[in-house]
Amino acid sequence: MLNIRSWSLSRREAAAGYLFISPWIIGFILLTLGPMLASLYFSFNQYNIVDMPRWIGLGNYTRLFNDPLFWQSLKVTLYFAVLALPSGLILSFLLAILLNQNIPGVRLWRTLYFLPSVLTGVAVTLLWVLLFNPQMGAVNQVLELIGIKGPGWLNDPDWSIPALVIMALWGVGQNMIIYLAGLQSVPAELYDAAKVDGAGRVMQFRHVTLPMMTPVLFYNLVLGLIGTFSYFTQAYVASGAVGEVGGPLRSTLFYNLYLYQNAFDYREMGYASAMAWVLFAIVLLLTLVVFRSSSLWVYYEGELRGKG
C-alpha cells in the first residue's frame, strides 16, 4: 500500500502537481498526441479510410513535391501571409495607439473597434461575400460613387486574395486590445524622462513606445504567423459561395484547403497527413526563425544583456 505520509514534502508537492495537471495530460495524450502520431503513421501509407492502410514509405512525401497544386497552395498561403500579416499587425497597432489617446468617448470607440473580432465565422464571411459581390455588392457601389469601377473581388483571380485580406482586417480588434494593454503598461516615467531629454512625440514613440512594445509585437507576430498558415474557414466559405472552393482559378486554394480536399473530398488521408506534417515543419521552421531573430529586436525590460 502506498504510504504517502512517508514521502518527503517536495515529493508530495510534485505528486499533487501531477495529479492536478493529469486531466490535461490525459486529454493531450488521447486527443492530441495520439491523433498526431496516427497521422504520422498514415503519412507513410496509402489510406482511403474505408480500407486498411497500405505502407508506401516516403511515397506521399515524394508525390507532394511533384504536385503542382501543392506548390500552388503554398504560393497562395505565402501571398496571403505577406499581405495579411504585416497589414494586420500595423493596423491593429495604429488603432491601439489612437485609442490610447485621451479622447471623448474612448471606451465606446474601443468597444466598437473590438466588436468585429467577436463576430467572426461563417455568417460574417457570407456577409462579406455579399459586400464584395461585383454586381450588387456595397463595396463596388461605394467605389462607383467616387467614379471607380470596382474589380470582381472574389470572382476575380487577381483580386480574390486582397479581398480575403480585407476580410481578415475585420478582426484586428483582437490584436488591438493586446496592444492597448501593452501600451498602458509602458511606465509613464520613461516618457517623462524622454521629455526632459527634449524628445518630441515622434522620438518618444521611436525610443520609448516601440521598444517597450516589442514583446507584444513579437507575441502577435508568432500567433499571427501560425494563424495565417491555419487559414481555412473564410477561404472555404467565401470561395464556395461564389461557385468553386479554392477558386476562381485556384487563386484561393490555401494550403489547408487543399489538405482538406485531399482528406475529405478525395479521401486520400495518407497524402493529407503528409501535407499536415510538411505544414507542421514549415510553421515550426518559421517560428524558430522568428524566435531566433527576437534577440535582435525584442526588448525585455528585466533582461540583462551582454556583460554590462
Partner: peptide, 21 residues
C-alpha cells in the same frame, strides 16, 4: 478514377471560360 480530382480539374477548365481568362 480519382473522381474528385478529375471533376475539380474539369471545373477549373470551365472557370477559365467563365472568368474570361
Amino acid at each position: 478514377p480519382n473522381w474528385g480530382r478529375i471533376n475539380d480539374a474539369l471545373n477549373f477548365a470551365a472557370s477559365l471560360i467563365n472568368t474570361g481568362e
